[in-house]
Amino acid sequence: MANSTASPHAPFKSVPYYPPMAINPDARCHLVISDGSDLPRTQALVSRLAQTPRVDSLVLGASDTPSLQRLLQVLAQWFAGLHVGVQLHVLGSEAFLWTIHAQATAHGLSNEEISLCSPTDAMQRLVYCVHCANVHSHPLADAVKCPACAVALEVREHFSRRLGAYLGVCRNADAPYSGLPA
């Protein structure tokens, strides 16, 4: 299958496109959310933002946000007290980026206000099994086996931001359950 990220049309297709980091100089508040997988990059970003009116950061695994659940709780509290003029920067695995993206849009942020930095786990991706509707993380490959329903899936170059996952569809309808180890 063609590598559509190389196409000039990539930003307009469903597969995610992570543009180079850009800082909105007019934002009144910057939030930096990281899953801790690339702390040097997180710290570099926070330093770059030092001149802006307000910077807050949350790092998964830190004392006040030890778990993803806790981090999402803290984030929800933040969002409730924030005003238009925010720029959110997210660093981490692709799964983490889209989890935070979903939480942010649920609180009214738009794509223009959310910057997703290129994922730290380029060799993994989430795959949505269209047959059983479960999402699992898999090593980067054209074909994977769904751990929930055991169908061997072809991973299509089609991505849902809402689910944060690529589309997985049965790769061989003559033998749906065979061909790949789980």
Binding site: V84, S110, E112
Partner: peptide
């Protein structure tokens, strides 16, 4: 609005 950080889409 832009100077206060409002994105164009709003």
């Amino acid at each position: 609005a832009s100077a206060l950080g409002w994105p164009d889409g709003r």
